[in-house]
């Protein structure tokens, strides 16, 4: 039976329709999860926290969205070891919620950057591991991954570094583009796999990543 993937919507989320389509394209069934509602872990097999500008990125990126009701359910779901994926703003929300290590800061250039970026997988042996290099678009103003050296060592030792940029676009510590939680079921990345689903988009490497859900 097809897996059901929950797609979270906050006020201001704007990549929700895109990831919804992408999840269905790889053969899963997508289901909306509204920010004011809680959900039961049996309703979905996986959750995506999509990109966009929840609450306009006001105060701190992801900070206001991290406080919403739906995130209580996402946290419970994650604690059960179920797969959760945060993309761009969703990554920021998961970091604010402390479901992922680190924090995302303003790009070194101080500006929003939209471009295609090459990524190399680091973590080799977990639910979210992908085999080969991929190419996804990035589109963010605050995507510089930061973590202090002690914690960097810890996530590195624990194989929590998921993806690295081949050509660091934003000043991320250690070129990190995506990380995993300690248990490796929660993943977050700044690049947008849902914008790389067809050759006409400029690449289709997003398919293999989203197929991890199946």
């Amino acid at each position: 039976m097809a897996k059901t993937i929950g797609v979270v919507r906050f006020l201001g989320t704007n990549c929700d329709e895109d990831i919804y389509k992408a999840v269905e394209q790889v053969g899963a069934k997508a289901k909306w999860l509204w920010y004011q509602d809680s959900f039961n872990e049996a309703e979905v097999d996986g959750v995506v926290v999509p990109g966009g500008f929840s609450y306009g990125d006001y105060l701190r990126c992801g900070a206001l969205a991290a406080k919403s009701t739906v995130m209580d359910s996402v946290e419970e779901f994650a604690k059960k070891g179920k797969p959760v994926l945060g993309i761009c703003n969703g990554f920021q929300v998961l970091c604010e919620r402390k479901l992922l290590p680190g924090v995302l800061l303003k790009n070194d250039s101080g500006k929003f950057i939209d471009q295609w970026s090459g990524l190399t997988p680091v973590s080799k042996d977990s639910f979210w591991s992908i085999k080969a290099d991929v190419k996804f678009p990035i589109a963010h103003g605050e995507g510089k991954f930061f973590i202090d050296s002690e914690n960097l060592k810890s996530i590195s030792d624990n194989d929590q570094i998921w993806l690295k940029y081949s050509d660091n676009p934003n000043g991320s510590v250690s070129d990190i583009a995506g990380v995993l939680n300690k248990e490796k079921n929660v993943a977050g990345l700044m690049p947008h796999p849902e914008r790389a689903m067809h050759d006409w988009m400029g690449g289709s490497d997003g398919v293999s990543l989203l197929e991890r859900f199946l």
Binding site: D18, A22, G52, K111, F112, I113, D114, A139, M201
Partner: peptide, 24 residues
């Protein structure tokens, strides 16, 4: 144009690099 999100909506086929913008 690097500062503009040229792909949100996942419909963009040709972005600002190209002389014309194309969406599906």
């Amino acid at each position: 144009y690097k500062q503009y999100d040229q792909r949100v909506g996942a419909r963009t086929q040709a972005d600002c690099d190209s002389p014309l913008g194309i969406i599906r």
